[in-house]
Amino acid sequence: MSALKPAASERAFDAVNIVLLIVLSLLFLIPFLAVIATSFISAEESMRRGAFVLIPEKLDLSAYDMLLNRGMIIYNAYKVTLFRVTAGTFLNLLLTATLAYGLARRTLPGRNVLVLIIFLTMIFHGGLIPNYMLIDKLGLKDTLWVLIFPGLISAWNLFIMRNFFLTLPEELEESAIIDGASPPLILWKIVVPLSMPAFATIGLFYAVHHWNDWFSASIYINDQSKMPIQVVMRNILLSGLLQDETQVELVRDPPPAATLKSAVIVISTLPIMFVYPFIQKYFVRGMMVGSIKG
């Protein structure tokens, strides 16, 4: 009797939970499906049916044709984005992890001062002009490195990473030291394998940031062939929006149609969304604790 009761309530809990999650998922999914559907309808159909279409009457690829087939604007922008996501994320992780690991040493002399120095950068910024001058002096302007170096370490991610290292059990390292392992060996053989969930998470944050960021490129890069995909996307989406009327005065043509805008959204967001499922395999419960025991 008493064994059955919790089981029944558990099943009820599961059912409610699953229904709730399905409803939430629909809430997240539908707008996105509408954007995808809109990108596949003809300009004429979008004029007729409005901007929120879930099922197209007829598939029309002209928006994609226009964006992907003529010229190489989008392809080139993809290449730039791909470069910054891969090279950028790698360097981000490398520097963030080393700094976070060093600062996570509880016995490190002066670590509070160093943490304070970093913390202050989260709050005080010099502003755009001095940054621009610095980038100029360093010779980074109009190079692809400007998309990577100025944001090598995010203090936010650094603190999360350090927090993670702080939660690693100290006994682990202590026993390794007793076994005569050197600090680099401990880092490489024990800490790094244990930190895969943290690396995956922080790496994902960096990668998505690199994918989404448009500001640094739009300010520091003049050469159109070095623009990442997000700058191209924003220019299309925001064209005609948020301008004062004197600017709109003599516009030759109306702003781009909903179909084109939707296609731009799809092209510029879909690829990065497929990264997450690959990273999920690092989020397996007990992975860390299990390896401690092993």
Binding site: L67, R70, G71, M72, I73, I74, Q224, S225, V232, N235, I236, L238, S239, G240, Q243, Q247, V248, L250, V251, R252, D253, P254, P255, P256
Partner: peptide
Amino acid sequence: TGALNAKPEGSVPAE
């Protein structure tokens, strides 16, 4: 100048 409003993605590079 607002000249690009009609085609915000810019020209085909060859053109």
